[in-house]
Design a protein around this nucleic acid. Structure first.
Lengths: 342, 342
DNA sequence: TTGAAAGCGCTAACAT
DNA sequence: ATGTTAGCGCTTTCAA
């Protein structure tokens, strides 16, 4: 094993090794400006044999350009945000931009700290989940003088750009579908995350439409921690034991919905005849359950891609803030479309 | 809405606003050196009202210290790596260090590119998945002269530190458990990822031990893409249709195992009497299935935490490379321990 | 306890 | 096509 380099190599080293000025070395390494093929080859050769890696810190300071895009998300704990990140990655892959992630754990003050830290790297853009932020956070976003995209949710006023779905509309849409299928005694189960504004908005959208039809949620329950699948099972059992007349269960995510589905399936309950079910997110995973759970796609990959594209366009000179609302479709699966009764 | 700042604020601005030298402002903002309470207050006040955010680019260049830890992983497509990231995050949270992620999609050349890009930020340490890298990648890791931790896998020679489990041993251990329970006609299903060295090593460990007992895998099948749960179902059906005498199915991950389990459960197959099953990863999700699938914990969170701690220790002065092998335990669940036959 | 000077490694701008 | 100069915004080092 070779010894570790005591001091990282600099342009000066490559310059010395190749007999070319630092400036020209820099030009070669960045493919900028006219450089003769001969010197070009010399420089590349020297850089490679030395194992030179450019110092972006110095480069960014000098050029006043930082090829970083800050991405701030609440959690890595389910597949939702990793998928968004994948979308962002896909788009940025072919550009000089690199994503840098920060995780807030759904906490406003942590969001503030993370944003502050990440802004201190002077990124070229920010992608941040949600529209609800502290005043300080909004102020930082505005003062940063860089493109900002707020993602996931479009029910609110963005600082700059936004792309997502309307979770309120999603809840409403689901309520209409439920009513149309003739269900009327409805239970709700979700995570107890007071900070999850999107789940809250879906719930509000649901209850709004139901209320207009004179219907109220008859039971609700919340959980936190543990295996979502197991929780879905337990909560479903408990809710139906306590409210045997329910004919529809709306879950705030597909995993607990899947748990409920498995439980009811094992009990031999007629789905969707006696009880209908729906979740949210459109996780690919569901395609292996005994029944396909009704759900709604949260457009995670598309949101990530769109957000990254907005950043690129804004950096490319476009100046109009973009507000993109994607339209998730209900996927009825096998648990929402009631058999027609004779 | 206020206008956007045309030029980001600098220390100079805070200095001017507070009537204190740049140097002292810098000291206050970093809590370094002795500063009188009076000036301290003045500076903080000025910084806050201006909305000053320090420039780490400049700071890092001047101090030759970059509080970044590079984290290079193959994928965000399942929960394995997000969980590792969570572990890393947890540990780094209370330190000045920030993780920066890069994704390789299980491709060596992409790993090389990503590492090069990320090293150009001069991070203080690198955490990278796996032990199999291109020569260029290994050379960069060595030359970087920073602590490197290779994670997940300990079957091989690390550049510097490593922490993970032996996937070969995991496969062996599972083989022994399978044999001990009296199974002998074994099928294997996994992802067709030639680059997933860890899955390969588990498979090799399995076949080694079986071979010593004079047993060969009787059927194997691989998939790529699509819903793992659905694939598990399909593949299981196909494999058993073609090989009805199999009495054990080993899956390279829990999701396809869960699919197989659901299928067999619906078919009324006696599990684990007629057929035993096992997966790998120990995903929490499994706790809601009709039977608990046998599996092995991949220690993802622990690996992330240990890796981050190693980085901290090495940066703190410790100089001994650490090689940590965690020991996953088989979780027998309900699908591996055969009922005793009378 | 505070300030002044020098320089981190690179690139923009201007020579040649 | 190549080189020179100045300076990015901060911190280290030294002086007061």
């Amino acid at each position: 094993m070779t010894d570790r380099a005591p001091r990282p190599l600099t342009l000066r080293d490559v310059s010395a090794a190749s007999g070319v000025s630092e400036m020209t070395v820099s030009r070669v390494l960045r493919n900028r400006g006219d450089v003769s093929e001969a010197t070009r080859a010399k420089v590349l050769e020297a850089a490679k044999t030395l194992g030179y890696v450019p110092n972006q810190i110095a480069g960014s300071l000098a050029s006043q350009q930082v090829n970083l895009v800050a991405v701030i998300i609440p959690s890595l704990g389910n597949m939702v945000f990793p998928e968004v990140l994948t979308g962002i990655n896909q788009v940025l892959e072919d550009t000089p931009l690199q994503p840098v992630f920060g995780v807030t754990d759904y906490m406003r003050d942590k969001e503030e700290r993370v944003l502050y830290e990440i802004l201190s790297w002077r990124p070229s853009g920010v992608i941040i989940a949600g529209l609800e932020h502290s005043d300080a956070t909004r102020a930082m976003l505005k003062n940063a003088a860089i493109p900002v995209v707020e993602i996931m949710d479009t029910d609110g006023n963005p600082v700059d750009n936004m792309v997502g779905i309307s979770h309120r509309a999603a809840g409403q849409q689901m309520a209409r579908a439920i009513l149309k299928q003739g269900y009327s005694r409805i239970g709700f189960m979700g995570t107890s995350m007071p900070r999850d504004h999107r789940a809250r908005k879906r719930f509000e959208g649901l209850t709004e439409v139901l209320a207009k039809a004179g219907i109220e949620i008859e039971a609700r329950d919340f959980y936190s921690g543990g295996s979502a699948l197991a929780k879905g099972r337990e909560m479903t059992k408990a809710m139906l034991d306590a409210n045997p007349d329910l004919d529809f269960l709306y879950y705030s995510n597909d995993m607990i919905g899947a748990g409920g589905l498995l439980y009811l399936f094992e009990q031999g309950v007629d789905i969707p005849g006696q009880i209908g079910l729906a979740g949210f997110n459109g996780v690919e995973l569901l395609d292996g359950l005994p029944r396909r759970l009704a759900t709604m796609d949260a457009c995670r990959l598309d949101i990530g891609r769109a957000a990254a594209n907005i950043i690129l366009e804004r950096l490319g000179g476009s100046t109009e803030p973009q507000h993109i609302t994607l339209s998730p479709k209900i996927s009825y699966g096998d648990t929402l479309r009631r058999q027609r009764r004779p």
